[in-house]
Simulated assay, not measured.
Amino acid sequence: MAVEALLSTRAQRAFLLTILIQGIVVLTMVAVTFAFVAEHVEFSTQRYKTLPCYLSLFALAEIFELLMAFDALRLRNVIQLIGILVFHGALIVFAALQVHETRTALVGAPDTADFINGDGPGSLWKKVLPFLIVSPCVIAVSWFSLLFWVRQLYFEFGWAIFHVVGANPAFKVMYRYYQIMICLLKFDFFCFTGVTMQLLIVVLATNSAEFGLTIAAIPIVLVLLIACGYAVQREVKWLMSISLVIMLAAETYFIYKLVRFYSPDSRAQYESTRATLTVFTIVAFLILFTTFAIGLRCFSDFDKGLRRSKEHDVTVTGTKKYSQTSPLPSPGDGNGNMSERQSSYLGGGHLEPRISIE
Rank of each mutant, 00 (worst) to 15 (best):
T325K: 10
A209S: 14
A209N: 14
R260A: 04
L57F: 03
V107S: 15
F292E: 09
A61N: 14
I220D: 07
L75Y: 13
F289M: 12
F155P: 00
T28F: 10
L258I: 08
A38Y: 05
P52W: 09
P136F: 06
V134D: 11
A105F: 15
L66V: 14
A250Q: 10
S272R: 06
T290F: 04
P121F: 04
S8D: 11
Y178A: 05
L75W: 04
I242L: 15
I139G: 04
K172D: 09
F131K: 02
I19A: 15
Y48V: 00
D333L: 04
E311N: 06
F70E: 13
E42I: 02
G166Q: 00
V202T: 11
E39T: 02
G194M: 12
Q269W: 03
K186W: 12
Y175E: 06
K257Q: 13
W159C: 00
A231D: 10
L132R: 05
S356H: 01
D333R: 10
L288P: 05
T50C: 00
V41S: 01
S263F: 04
V25S: 09
F115H: 11
V195Q: 05
Y175G: 01
K257N: 15
K310N: 10
A249W: 13
V25R: 04
R47L: 00
F64P: 03
L129T: 12
V128D: 12
T290Y: 01
V134C: 09
V25N: 11
P219F: 07
G23A: 01
L286R: 02
L75T: 08
L222C: 10
K304H: 00
V283A: 10
V78W: 02
F34L: 07
A268M: 06
E358H: 09
V203T: 15
V134P: 06
R234N: 11
Q198M: 13
T325L: 12
A109M: 13
S339G: 11
P110E: 03
M338G: 13
L85Y: 08
L132F: 14
Y256L: 06
L222V: 12
A170W: 00
I19W: 07
K172P: 01
A160W: 07
L258H: 04
V86Q: 05
F157N: 04
C298Y: 01
V26K: 09
L239Y: 13
N168K: 05
T325V: 14
F211E: 06
I282W: 02
I226D: 05
R274P: 01
V173N: 01
T206G: 14
L204F: 08
Y256H: 11
R151Y: 09
Y253P: 02
Y48Q: 00
S241D: 08
L200G: 15
Y345S: 13
T9L: 13
T206Q: 08
A268C: 03
R308Y: 01
Q233K: 12
L277A: 12
Q22Y: 06
H88V: 03
